[in-house]
Design a binder for these strands. Structure first.
Lengths: 233, 233
DNA sequence: CGAGCGCTTGACCGGCGTCAACACCCGTGG
DNA sequence: CCACGGGTGTTGACGCCGGTCAAGCGCTCG
């Protein structure tokens, strides 16, 4: 998997006051006064599947709120292998670390078609000094990111191959329709779970055979959870 | 390993102005004005090896700066196994997440005799509104914690048993004497690397046999790095 | 309709887990 | 002072899980 394309498109600028997912995002608690302090436009951007949103070590212009789709955070290890450290979903913030260092600590790649809004660092630095509401939200986003990172380590990278695949199935449940779950390309799943793609494939087949999962498409991306208990190893 | 003892001792209150490791810690950049805003005492505490500093889910009074020693952050998974998600070292902050949620997301256990100072949440909430210097420091501590979490996942939980043990040896090098490195009880190392203690023991023996490491004590806690290249798998 | 990519499945093998015995350190008590 | 015992680290034998290599299948898209 060598994603080279940088298929991004500018979709206009956001009026954050009537963002569809405003209650989940950084600006949830801002008031009119706070909004009036935003002098740089917030851009809406779209990326196609496999597009790179930013690179590891890249100088950061801003951070991103994920509005739609899923994004993988990838790190390359010393010996050149790639490891997926987390998958972000709508409402999550990409590139928080840029607030502290102005650089991204990992690579962000769209797993499906994705839409994000980009918030310039300058806006955040300015607002977080004047708005304790944003300050609190930021803290919560940091906390959530850290907890998420620890969860990935504790849940998805521990135990047998079967347990790992089952945990991923539960973690990737659709928030709106919890009986459905999303999978990814098998080599991506391998990089998330520290398994080879053949093993991932075998374990998924096993779960289907035992009646825990049922495939919803021919590409092996969407599954229905038939028996939740079989997944809670 | 069932650490029940809560061997902690109050060692007095700190004057953070002349803290020995002040340049590494949260209060590094505070000025006289900031210090004068601190109305609750900062306590110095000492914990003996295996003492629990706080529990997962516990209501938080404050967060801690690690002054001396090493601390493991432990999470118990759904099926009751224990997983060590990170090891903190002097200058690191324990329990940052309490700033956002007033609860600790993991258990913190002293790996050796440890000394910490406890900063009440009230002090931080008050100061971070008035001091942009503290605000910036906090951001850096969050960023560091998140990067550290991702590093543990990407470096120490990927690849063969040999690679994991070698990575841990490099990560746990003594900052002052980089030719020395610290190991832990073999079952703790297993919980860090997702290996069984016998495998850890075998790989360490292998590295010693091949001339990469030399034991410095009889307990298997301190090793000298003889050949760094053999560890950089 | 054919080429190519990704997913699945099979056979085989090696690395790691399991179980067990043993060595060593250290604290305890005779 | 030494004998004893528990805890921890090491080492060995063996089996199984997951990695490796390879073939085959089914999409999808020219």
């Amino acid at each position: 998997m060598i994603p080279i394309h940088i298929d991004s498109a500018w979709k206009g600028t956001s009026d954050c006051r009537d963002c569809g997912i405003r209650d989940m995002v950084l600006f949830a608690d801002l008031n009119e006064q706070d909004f009036s302090e935003i002098h740089t436009p917030i851009d809406d951007l779209a990326f196609t599947a496999d597009a790179v949103i930013y690179h590891e070590g890249q100088q950061a212009i801003g951070l991103f709120t994920l509005r739609k789709g899923m994004v993988k955070l990838v790190r390359s290890t010393a010996d050149g292998r790639e490891r997926i450290v987390r998958v972000l979903r709508p409402g999550d913030v990409l590139g928080l670390e840029a607030l502290a260092t102005s650089k991204y600590d990992s690579e962000a790649v769209a797993l499906v078609d994705v839409s994000v809004c980009r918030i310039p660092l300058s806006v955040l630095h300015h607002l977080s000094n004047t708005s304790s509401r944003l300050h609190l939200r930021l803290m919560q986003k940091w906390q959530h990111a850290l907890k998420d990172a620890d969860d990935w380590l504790a849940d998805l990278n521990f135990g047998t191959a079967r347990q790992r695949v089952a945990s991923l199935a539960l973690k990737m449940r659709d928030p709106d329709q919890p009986q459905f779950t999303s999978f990814f390309a098998r080599d991506d799943m391998g990089a998330m779970l520290d398994l080879k793609l053949e093993t991932v494939s075998r374990e998924i087949s096993g779960l289907v055979r035992e009646g825990a999962l049922k495939p919803c498409d021919k590409q092996g991306r969407r599954y229905e959870i038939l028996n939740e208990r079989l997944l809670q190893v």
